[in-house]
């Protein structure tokens, strides 16, 4: 039997969580502050949300960010899944070692370097910077996160399921589509969501690789924040937090439904 947690244990966890959530809570509460002075409480109000609606540039930036996130997360999910498949399912040779290293390297590479190097590439090949270049940059980084998530799931998946499909006459590509893909779908969804939020979140890489007309939301917020605290920013941030929270809730509900349909990961290991 594990011993019961001590008071110290419980206080540590509680304080840790309070530290993580208090600043966000403060931000959300102040986004409903009627006063322009961020520090003075002037009563509840939706005033700053109203002002956001009129801000065309901000809405355009949000639109750009969402489109880039959608495009890059889709591409990253495809490429990351293929990378995970190549690493876990195909022969151990030098090509696999190189791919494993290339998948891990962007995860630890400082963003300033990734951003700089991609920008220099785009300049070298004369590719105009904008929507496309940011999407490529985000795809490159986030596909590695997707690969890590999907790789973990594939490693967990009973290999004999795929062997059974092939044994029953199913060629490799069709085996992937009819057996592997349905079974790793939750990991794919998680990977997509991760890639989507990472893209939506990114400031540094986007700053390097963006061009005229492709200002993303973080770039816009960053330039505002540098000028000081404004209540409108509290409102934008609250909307972003709410969006992510909603997406996470929907995703976890969908995942729960999907996983209850295929509960046993390793059939037979009863």
């Amino acid at each position: 039997m594990r011993p019961a947690p001590s008071l110290f244990n419980i206080v540590s966890v509680a304080c840790g969580l309070a530290f993580l959530y208090l600043p966000i809570a403060v931000l959300v509460v102040y986004s409903f502050n009627a006063s322009r002075l961020v520090t003075v409480w002037g009563g509840w109000s939706l005033r700053w949300y109203g002002e956001l609606i009129g801000d065309q540039a901000l809405i355009a930036a949000a639109r750009t960010s969402l489109l880039i996130a959608l495009a890059s997360a889709s591409a990253a999910t495809l490429l990351g899944t293929l990378a995970a498949l190549a690493i876990t399912r195909f022969g151990a040779d030098r090509g696999r070692t190189a791919l494993s290293a290339m998948v891990l390297a962007p995860l630890v590479m400082p963003e300033v370097i990734t951003g700089l190097s991609l920008l220099l590439l785009f300049v070298a090949i004369n590719l105009d910077r904008g929507f496309l270049t940011v999407t490529i940059a985000h795809t490159t980084v986030t596909m590695c996160f997707v690969a890590v998530v999907v790789k973990a799931r594939l490693a967990d998946l009973d290999r004999s399921l795929e062997e059974a499909a092939m044994d029953l006459g199913c060629p490799p590509a069709r085996t992937f589509l009819t057996v592997t893909l349905p079974l790793i779908a939750p990991a794919l969804a998680a990977g997509f969501l991760l890639a989507f939020t990472l893209s939506l979140d990114d400031l540094v890489i986007a700053s390097f690789t963006t061009g005229p007309g492709a200002t993303t939301l973080p770039i816009r917020i960053y330039s505002d924040v540098r000028l000081g605290v404004k209540p409108e920013i509290n409102a934008i941030c609250t909307i972003m937090i709410a969006t992510v929270a909603l997406a996470l809730i929907v995703a976890s509900l969908a995942l729960r439904r999907a996983s209850s349909a295929t509960t046993s990961r390793r059939p037979g290991a009863a």
């Binding site: 490429l79 190549a86 399912r89 195909f90 290339m102 962007p106 700089l116 190097s117 991609l118 590439l121």
Partner: peptide, 20 residues
């Protein structure tokens, strides 16, 4: 399966680093 991610990362991760 092997070439698509490898080529992508070679083009957009390895090559940019060599350019740096």
């Amino acid at each position: 399966v092997r070439l698509a991610p490898t080529l992508w990362l070679a083009a957009f991760f390895l090559l940019p680093f060599l350019i740096i």
